[in-house]
């Protein structure tokens, strides 16, 4: 199995954020993770990245156990992520931020710069390479965070609400970019998303979390008709979307 989460539990005091969550992802897939606010999606991501240590259960990438490993080692194993709020490194230039990601695999400035250039070219931000991050607009900043993560040469990329705050044309640009990352760079993607239209259009499989429990999984079509999911999360909202 490429990536496997089994029976992971995490509780904060009395609140169970993740209750025996198990899921599997094959190489090359795009998998979505949805659920209402406070369902434990971000907690699950943070556990995969090593920011939060699971109480029990195991998380494995290609057979390597990730629980209890520090974040930077998990990154070197091949998992990268983008954060919910794309802050990046406000005072660094785009080029240097991406180089920071490239330094994960090399110590040579020359190699890192070359690699960073290639990645920036891939997302089409070459003309903004020397701009400071806090002078970029929100779409470019999200792209920048994506490139920085890609520069670490990940096999699995976690995207936490990458599409939040983008307008509809930017959303379709970003969808195209994410699809290219999957097909051209052969990166497996695991996506948390609130914009349902997005998750339905790009992911082949979707997991649904509610109150820390995995309540359903399957193709977007299966999910959208599952009564449990409709009750927990989609409700009237999705029916409106359909019509």
């Amino acid at each position: 199995m490429f990536f496997e989460v089994s029976e992971v539990t995490k509780s904060y005091g009395g609140l169970v954020a993740n209750d025996k969550v198990s899921l599997k992802i094959d190489k090359g897939e795009i998998v979505g993770l949805i659920g209402p606010n406070g369902a434990g999606k971000s907690t699950l991501f943070q556990m995969v990245q090593g920011f939060v240590v699971a109480d029990s259960g195991s998380i494995k990438l290609k057979g390597t156990e990730l629980v209890n490993k520090p974040t930077y080692k998990i990154c070197r194993e091949g998992i990268a992520c983008t954060f919910q709020h794309a802050l990046l490194f406000p005072k660094l230039t785009l080029g240097e931020s991406v180089r920071m990601g490239a330094y994960c695999r090399t110590s040579s400035r020359k190699k890192a710069t070359e690699h960073a250039r290639r990645m920036i070219e891939f997302v089409g931000l070459t003309d903004k390479e020397d701009k400071q991050i806090n002078k970029l607009n929100i779409y470019d900043r999200k792209c920048a965070e994506l490139v920085a993560a890609l520069a670490t040469e990940p096999e699995l990329l976690l995207l936490d609400e990458l599409f939040a705050g983008l307008n509809s044309s930017e959303v379709s640009d970003m969808i195209a970019l994410v699809k290219r990352i999957n097909t051209e760079l052969k990166v497996t993607l695991f996506i948390i998303e609130h914009v349902l239209k997005v998750i339905m259009s790009i992911s082949r499989r979707v997991y649904v979390l509610d109150y820390g429990k995995l309540i359903a999984s399957g193709t977007p079509q299966e999910i959208s008709v599952s009564p449990l999911v409709i009750k927990a999360y989609l409700g009237e909202e999705y029916n409106e979307l359909e019509s």
Binding site: F51, C75, A80, L88, F89, A112, A151
Partner: peptide
């Protein structure tokens, strides 16, 4: 400042969590 060391220093200053997630032992 121009080497990996300096870039990582500034990255730690600006956003330590992100620096970690990009593979730096902060």
């Amino acid at each position: 400042r121009k080497s990996k060391l300096g870039t990582t220093f500034v990255a730690v200053r600006e956003n330590e969590n992100l620096a970690q997630s990009l593979g730096a032992n902060t």
